[in-house]
């Protein structure tokens, strides 16, 4: 299932980015723990009362991926780009497909390589971060953290994000479109609903979109990178498995003749040809309306919104046409 030659190949092409991911996790856990301990010590000495109030948040933030989690996702986008997209930009894709391996073996090796790099780097860094605190005078603070949740919930979050990125990688035709689509689709569902909600608000409708907690919390994968929210680990695990299966299916079926184009599947072109201009138009309307005074009349607001909407739709339609011709 995992031929050694394929491991060698993935390692050769992705080792630098893999190391980058490891460094980000190290910065996020042991290194930041070491630096935070100094700050905590100073705070405890100089502002004891304030420290008592803040200790719970400080230790939970330490074990929450937070900012470094976002950076790690950025590096993961690059890693998946190196694993899948970069090959499609070069003759390496032909070279790979001509080797005596099945597409399932090729995909499984790529998938396992990235997953192992991500989970090992994360686990090692988390453990080292834990040990740094455990060795310090702030050892007692660890009792304020649910360590099992602090470890597994972000890991499940990274798992679902990684699987989703692999799915986008299997659909995209080359590395630039893969990176672009990865960034867009990580926020797409929530972003689209926000745009729709703005549209409804401007037109006097009340769609109650923000009350859809399942979409804005459970399906917003970045929420699993914050251990201070109440998260259900089953959802990212379930969706991670679904995305993995879809990614495998798409990789298996992707027609190699479209490698180097915007998308591997021409069947998706109509969806993108309509979807991109509509989303851009909604965004265009929102951007333009934000520049007019808040207390402007409703009629003016609607008119300005539609000007932004139509201008953005026109340009994005032009751009989309070019992209899909790529």
């Amino acid at each position: 299932m995992f031929p050694k030659a394929l491991w060698m190949k993935e390692w050769k092409h992705s080792k630098v980015v893999s190391f980058g991911l490891f460094v980000v996790f190290m910065l996020g856990y042991p290194i930041s723990a070491g630096l935070n301990i100094d700050s905590w010590r100073m705070m405890k000495e100089q502002r004891g009362g304030f420290w008592e109030e803040q200790a719970y948040y400080a230790i939970n933030e330490q074990f929450s991926p937070g900012f470094y989690g976002y950076i790690a996702v950025g590096v993961m986008i690059l890693l998946v780009g190196f694993l899948i997209g970069l090959e499609k930009n070069t003759k390496r894709h032909d070279f790979m497909m001509a080797l005596p391996f099945s597409r399932t073996q090729i995909f499984a090796t790529k998938y396992a390589f990235g997953l192992i790099v991500m989970s090992l780097s994360y686990s090692l860094s988390f453990t080292l971060g834990y040990l740094v605190i455990y060795q310090s005078e702030f050892r007692d603070l660890i009792d304020l953290v649910n360590i099992t949740d602090a470890f597994f919930i972000p890991l499940a979050g990274y798992f679902v994000i990684y699987s989703f990125l692999m799915l986008i990688g299997a659909i995209a035709g080359e590395i630039k479109s893969q990176i672009l689509l990865s960034i867009i689709f990580l926020f797409f569902l929530q972003g689209f609903l926000v745009l729709l909600s703005m549209f409804s608000e401007i037109h006097g409708l009340n769609l109650q979109i923000f009350e859809l907690d399942f979409i804005f919390e459970d399906l917003f994968w970045f929420s699993y990178l914050n251990i201070m929210t109440d998260s259900n680990i089953v959802i990212p695990l379930l969706f991670g498995i679904i995305f993995t299966a879809l990614a495998w299916f798409c990789y298996q079926r992707s027609p190699s003749e479209h490698s180097g184009e915007f998308l591997m599947f021409r069947q998706l072109h109509p969806l993108f040809a309509v979807g991109i201009p509509i989303c851009s138009a909604l965004l265009g309307g929102l951007i333009v309306i934000s520049v007019i005074p808040y207390n402007s009349g409703e009629g003016l607001k609607i008119m300005v919104y539609w000007i932004g909407f139509l201008v953005a739709m026109f340009f994005s339609w032009k751009v989309t046409k070019r992209l899909l011709r790529m």
Binding site: T90, K91, R92, D94, F95, A98, P100, F101
Partner: peptide, 19 residues
């Protein structure tokens, strides 16, 4: 695909080997 142990494809470009 195992049967491709017996088939080697040499494309017109050697880009895949360059690194």
């Amino acid at each position: 695909p195992d049967v491709k142990q017996n088939v080697v494809f040499v494309p017109d470009s050697t880009d895949a080997l360059r690194t």
